[in-house]
């Protein structure tokens, strides 16, 4: 039994301690907002925060999390209110299929924490997630909008 803290709640799981956090979230804990895209840390669809830092959860074994606090897309809203990145995403009507957007929003939220007023170059460097529908132009606009708010 391994205990991990996700979105402020402690979960106990019987999953094999070597299981990637991504699959513990999705299959053991039912937190399916975090997506599987590649399993090799390329696409970023599985991005979560560990102690506030963006991580690709497909590369994080369960037993490496320890007492660190995990935040997933389900935990971004506070008291039912979406965070400013989610609000900007809504205002810019960003998603198309939406599958990559959990990871995009997690990456953007982490970026704004360290760089509150990112330049286009900051966005280019931080947002390495893949979107196949091609929402990059709206993502850029939404990050700038969130930075204003």
């Amino acid at each position: 039994m391994v205990a991990i803290t996700i979105n402020g709640k402690v979960y106990n799981t019987n999953a094999d301690p070597r299981t990637p956090l991504l699959w513990v979230l999705r299959d053991d804990l039912g937190l399916t907002g975090t997506k599987y895209g590649c399993g090799v840390a390329q696409c970023g669809a599985c991005t979560v925060h560990i102690d506030g830092v963006a991580n690709r959860s497909c590369q994080v074994p369960l037993n490496s999390v320890g007492r660190r606090k995990v935040t997933t897309i389900e935990g971004l809203a506070e008291n039912g209110k979406m965070n400013k990145v989610q609000e900007a995403w809504l205002a810019q009507d960003v998603p198309q299929c939406g599958y990559c957007q959990s990871g995009m929003i997690m990456a953007a939220t982490a970026l704004l924490k360290t760089t509150p007023k990112p330049t286009d170059e900051d966005i280019d460097a931080a947002m390495t997630n893949i979107c196949r529908c091609g929402t990059y132009q709206q993502i850029r606009a939404a990050i700038h909008e969130a930075a204003k708010g």
Binding site: G33, Y36, I73, Q86, P95, G98, Q101
Partner: peptide, 15 residues
């Protein structure tokens, strides 16, 4: 169909 895509609530087949 945007809002659920921003919160993780949207259910895809894989979910």
């Amino acid at each position: 169909d945007t809002k659920d895509k921003l919160t993780g609530a949207q259910i895809y087949g894989i979910d």
